[in-house]
Design a protein around this nucleic acid. Structure first.
Lengths: 204, 204
DNA sequence: AAAATATAAATGAACGTTCATTCATTTGTT
DNA sequence: AACAAATGAATGAACGTTCATTTATATTTT
């Protein structure tokens, strides 16, 4: 393999990825706008500015597209949120940082939230693995475990702590996206973080 | 109108309602089992033990069926949960009672939860009115207001309190239905109620 | 360097299904 | 006989997917 062919191969892969991404981005926009129910291959192609058949060059079919998108979002989410975790910091600081990262993530990529919510509640729609549903909770688990060990977080069952953190985050995002509150206001966000922390922390 | 025709009319209405209910119950079971995506009129008819055309004698079409089901569930939920509200009782007691009613409601009618979750996140799918989404929150609103007035509930923005209560309830139900926890165990349920109350109550 | 050839990428009409809905007909009731 | 209720085959639109064809890109030959 000479340098020339190496460069060619690199460019080749990059282009494939670009088109794959373009298709996934289209799905994202469509699911947000019209919902899963009205999603179809022709629309996806139109939105991506390609022909319907082209999608099948990059994905096995509709299911494959949807699953690929889910995996992309989960990977992106976990990476960005776990980025906020620094061993040396206190649990409280890590909690704030990760919750903030999670909320910022969904505020920045608001289509992600809509997609994830709809995907999660479509039983056996496109799911290869039911446990996938809970992959988004990994960062919270990590933090909870450490907090319990250090006795700064209440010794409640994991499910309850998860509910208080993830559940309330979910709902406040929902309310934000429905314009029932405004997480961009600094005050609201801070008060939410604090309320959330108070809910799970051992009072000092 | 004589007694006979009155009886006839009564029976007539009852039968209509029975068939309507039978159709809605079928939808419920199918949505839980296969998801919204795989729902179709033939399946609904089969599940209800009637012919496909018969559905159109009772509903305008598919959308109408879905919307009717949603309205039925919301009405049922609000009634059953608000049943737990007694003016003379303390806010804390009312909170426990209503949260318990809500959870029992969804545990008893587990198909309801699956349906509501999927319906809520299908943007513009079958929704005549976007604000419908938040109709399930009415009972919580009522309690929150009173609690704030009596200064037993933290003076946080409604959206935050809602998130802590409704959001965490939602997630714990989700975890229960996915067998990640067991709300039927008395201990878990009680600890969840207490944790939830601690999250919103002013420490005494 | 241009032309010819080979390969890859993209297209969109066509296909077979599936679906919601309709309605002429049948079944049940008054 | 008269009416209401239920049927399910028929209909046509919509869908996911395929594939013969076209367009674009790369390679080889002249």
């Amino acid at each position: 393999m000479n340098v020339h062919s190496f460069v060619c191969k690199f460019v080749f892969i990059r282009l494939i990825m670009d088109k794959k991404q373009a298709i996934l981005k289209s799905v994202l926009r469509l699911v947000k706008r019209d919902g899963f129910y009205h999603l179809n291959m022709k629309k996806i192609a139109e939105e991506a500015g390609i022909a319907a058949g082209t999608i099948y060059l990059y994905f096995k079919g509709k299911e494959d597209v949807i699953n690929a998108l889910y995996k992309m979002i989960v990977t992106d989410f976990n990476q960005k949120v776990l980025d906020g975790y620094i061993e040396s910091r206190s649990v409280k600081e890590n909690f704030h940082e990760m919750l903030n990262n999670a909320i910022q993530f969904y505020l920045k990529e608001r289509d992600y939230f809509s997609f994830i919510e709809q995907y999660t509640y479509a039983p056996f729609l496109f799911k290869e693995n039911q446990d996938e549903n809970f992959m988004l909770l990994l960062p919270i688990y990590k933090m909870m475990k450490e907090g319990k060990k250090q006795k700064v977080i209440k010794n409640l069952p994991d499910a309850i702590l998860l509910s208080l953190i993830h559940g309330s985050m979910n709902t406040i995002l929902k309310l934000h996206l429905a314009h029932k509150t405004d997480l961009n206001k600094k005050g609201i966000k801070q008060r939410f973080y604090d309320a959330c922390w108070e809910a799970i922390a051992i009072a000092s």
